[in-house]
C-alpha cells in the first residue's frame, strides 16, 4: 500500500510540475492581490502593516482555492478516478494523498513567498515569523476543507465558483485564528495551536467526507 501511495503522490507532483498550472499561477495571483492592496488603500504604511495579516490570509485562501476545483475533476474527466476506485488504496487515502500533493505544489510556495510579499505591506520582521508559522499551521485545513467542496462539485462543469461558495463559510474559523495570531493582545502561540488542531481534525475527517461525496457521483 505504501508503494501505491508513493506512486500516486509522485504522479500528482509530476503532473503539477509538468503542467505548471497550480503552483506558479497561484503564486502570481497571490502577488497580484498583495500588489493591488496598497493601490486600493493608499500609501499609509501604518494602516497597511496593521491589516497585512488579514490581506495575506485572504490572498492565501483565494490562491489555494484557485486550482482546487480541478483536484478530482481532472481525474474524473479522463477516467482515472474510476480506475483509481479499483486500486488497492482506500478512497479516503487517495483523497488525502491528492490533498498533500496539492498542498505541496500550491500552499507551500505561497508560505515560502509570504515573508517577501509581507515586506511589501510593511510588516515587521518579528511578525513575519508568526505569520509564516500560522500559515504553515492553517493551510492544510484550508486544502482539506476545499477537497470536500471539490469532491461535491466533481461532476459539475465549471464548478469552481460553486465550490468556493460551498466551502468559504467553512474556512471562517481558520481565517479568524490565522489573523488572531498577529493580534498583540493575544499570545501568538495560542491561535497557532488552535490552527494546528483545525488542520489535524481536517486531516482526520475531511478525507472521509470527500470520499463519501466521490462515491456518489
Amino acid at each position: 500500500m505504501m508503494r501505491a501511495a508513493i506512486a500516486l503522490l509522485n504522479r500528482d507532483l509530476t503532473i503539477a510540475l509538468r503542467i505548471g498550472g497550480g503552483g506558479a499561477v497561484g503564486l502570481i495571483f497571490f502577488l497580484s492581490i498583495i500588489t493591488l492592496t496598497p493601490f486600493a488603500i493608499g500609501p499609509d504604511l501604518n494602516l497597511l502593516a496593521r491589516i497585512a495579516p488579514a490581506i495575506i490570509w485572504i490572498a492565501v485562501l483565494l490562491a489555494t482555492l484557485l486550482g482546487l476545483d480541478r483536484l478530482f475533476q481532472a481525474d474524473e474527466d479522463d477516467g482515472v478516478l474510476d480506475v483509481l476506485h479499483t486500486s488497492i488504496l482506500p478512497l479516503e487515502l487517495i483523497v488525502l494523498i491528492k490533498c498533500i500533493a496539492h498542498w505541496l505544489t500550491t500552499a507551500l510556495p505561497l508560505i515560502i513567498a509570504t515573508p517577501v510579499f509581507a515586506l511589501m505591506l510593511g510588516l515587521g520582521t518579528g511578525d513575519l515569523w508568526v505569520l509564516s508559522l500560522s500559515l504553515l499551521a492553517g493551510t492544510p485545513a484550508l486544502t482539506l476543507i476545499g477537497a470536500i467542496g471539490a469532491a461535491l462539485t466533481v461532476s459539475v462543469r465549471r464548478g469552481g465558483l460553486l465550490m468556493a461558495v460551498l466551502i468559504l463559510p467553512l474556512t471562517i474559523p481558520v481565517l479568524i485564528f490565522g489573523v488572531a495570531a498577529q493580534d498583540p493582545n493575544v499570545p501568538s502561540m495560542l491561535p497557532i495551536l488552535v490552527l494546528v488542531a483545525f488542520s489535524l481534525a481536517a486531516i482526520a475527517l475531511a478525507p472521509i467526507a470527500a470520499a463519501a461525496a466521490l462515491r456518489h457521483i
Partner: peptide, 14 residues
C-alpha cells in the same frame, strides 16, 4: 477487476 471504461484512464501530461 480491471476496468476499461469509455475514457481511457490516462494522464495526457505523462
Amino acid at each position: 477487476a480491471h476496468l476499461l471504461g469509455t475514457a481511457d484512464g490516462l494522464k495526457a501530461a505523462l
